[in-house]
Structure formats: C-alpha cells, structure tokens
C-alpha cells in the first residue's frame, strides 16, 4: 500500500502499449532507504513499468497515479523526472554514435545540476569526479573517449549505465534487467557499484527475471509481477522460492 512517507508511491497504475493493456493496476510503494525487487516472467510488464516511470513515449498511462517525492511523476517530462532524482538503468543501453561518453556524462550532470539550482562543473572538476567513480567500477578511462555504448561489450554497457547512475547520484534508481548479458565477474562488479549507492536517502527498484542478481543486491522486499499485476509480495526469501519453483505455480493461480 502507498504510504505518505513512501519515496515512490504507485497506485492503480494501468498502461497500454500500442493500445494493448500491459499494466493492469499496480500498487507499490518504496520508502527511502529500501531496495525493492520486481520479478516476473517475460511479458509480465516489468520493463513497461520501468519505461512508464521514466516517461518514454509510446507507453500510455490509462489509469492510476505515481507520486515521487511528493510530486506527480506522470505529469513530468522525462528530463524533469531525471532532474527530480529518478534514474532508469536501461536493459538495452542505447548506442549514441558521434556522442563522446565524457561529453554525454558531463552534459547530463550539468543539466541535472542546473535544474536543481546547483553550479555546473567545469571540465577539470568533472574529470576528477568521473575518474573516481570509474575507478570504483573498474572501468578504464579510455571508455570516456569512446562514443556512448558504441562497440561496448554487454558488460561494458551495463557498467556504463551504473557509471551514469554514480555520476548523477539520483534519489531513486530503477534497474531494468541489469543482470542480463553479464558474466559472473561483471555481475559482481555491477552489483558492488549498485550496493555502493545504497543508503538511507536512496530508494531502488530492481527489475529482474532471475534471482541471480538478488544474491548480490539483496532486496528489502520482493514483488512478483504477473499479467500486469503484482500477485505476491514478500521478503528476500521469496526470490529464492521463485528460483526453486519457477513462475508456473503462480501463473496457474493467477
């Protein structure tokens, strides 16, 4: 249930993609300082939830509301959601040929800082900040010179997402299938990066198909999304149970 102190409060959220209902009334609230996991089989609406929260075109909200830090999230443009502190780590990070990674990160950071009324960082200040963050994520500085995600391996793309998150320091992170396409070493590095961002002021929603990621990013709550609705919620042990039994039983019940 949504509570007034929740950082992210979703109530009765319904959305369509190409006029097809995908989310059919989602209730979910994540308080500051907590990490919630959304689990579910393919086609259950997990990624749609991430896109609806971040304001992607083509995802039409047909009902319900989302309050983020007391603001009406759904009324905001994508860039304003980012400035307000929401961050979506993409399942498939987008390649930007011709856009240098360093330039991209700095433009994003300064855009967010401007909106928040903070001073922009100059090139030197920015470089100092980003170098420190990259070191934590085990990324080579050479990646700053490359075009955003172009020619990056799957693991490099995901690390680049977490780097953006670390640089922008959002209040709330939505991680969409961040584990997909990662080998176990890359998974650990990415999870360490995410865990480093956990804190009492920050909320997270971790969307994943598998329990694997949740062994490294241990959630406070786990919700199962099925057919566009949350059908079950529980503690971290629910992830293990699903890993063992699969979604079949729940699908039959639903």
């Amino acid at each position: 249930m949504a509570t007034s102190e929740a950082m992210l409060a979703i109530e009765g959220l319904a959305a369509t993609v190409d006029e097809k209902p995908v989310l059919k009334g989602i209730d979910l609230s994540v308080p500051a300082g907590e990490v919630h996991a959304i689990m579910g089989p393919n086609g259950s609406g997990k990624s749609t939830l991430g896109y609806v929260l971040s304001g992607r075109e083509g995802y039409d909200v047909t009902g319900g509301s989302v309050s983020f830090r007391g603001q009406d999230l759904l009324a905001m443009e994508p860039e304003d959601r980012a400035a307000a502190g929401l961050f979506l780590a993409f399942q498939y990070p987008v390649e930007l040929p011709g856009v240098g990674n360093a330039n991209f990160l700095r433009q994003a950071l300064n855009a967010v800082r401007r909106k928040r009324g903070e001073a922009e960082l100059d090139a030197m200040q920015f470089l100092k900040l980003v170098r420190a963050k990259m070191k934590v994520l085990g990324m080579s500085e050479e990646m700053l010179k490359r075009f955003v995600n172009v020619g990056f391996s799957g693991g490099e793309k995901k690390r680049n997402e977490i780097l953006q998150m670390a640089v922008l320091e959002p209040a709330f992170c939505v991680l969409d299938e961040t584990d997909s396409g990662l080998d176990i070493d890359a998974l650990k590095i990415v999870a360490d990066g995410v865990n480093a961002l956990r804190g009492p002021e920050r909320g997270m929603l971790v969307i994943t198909h598998y329990q694997r990621l949740l062994a490294y990013i241990v959630p406070d709550r786990v919700h199962v999304l099925l057919g566009g609705r949350i059908v079950r919620s529980g503690g971290p042990e629910l992830a293990l149970e699903l890993e063992e039994k699969g979604y079949g039983e729940l699908q039959q019940a639903a």
Binding site: E57, A82, A108, V112
Partner: peptide, 8 residues
C-alpha cells in the same frame, strides 16, 4: 529518450 532520461 535516452538523453532526456539522463536529464538533458
């Protein structure tokens, strides 16, 4: 959308 989702 990717750029805008990063606040630009």
């Amino acid at each position: 959308f990717y750029l805008r989702s990063r606040g630009i």
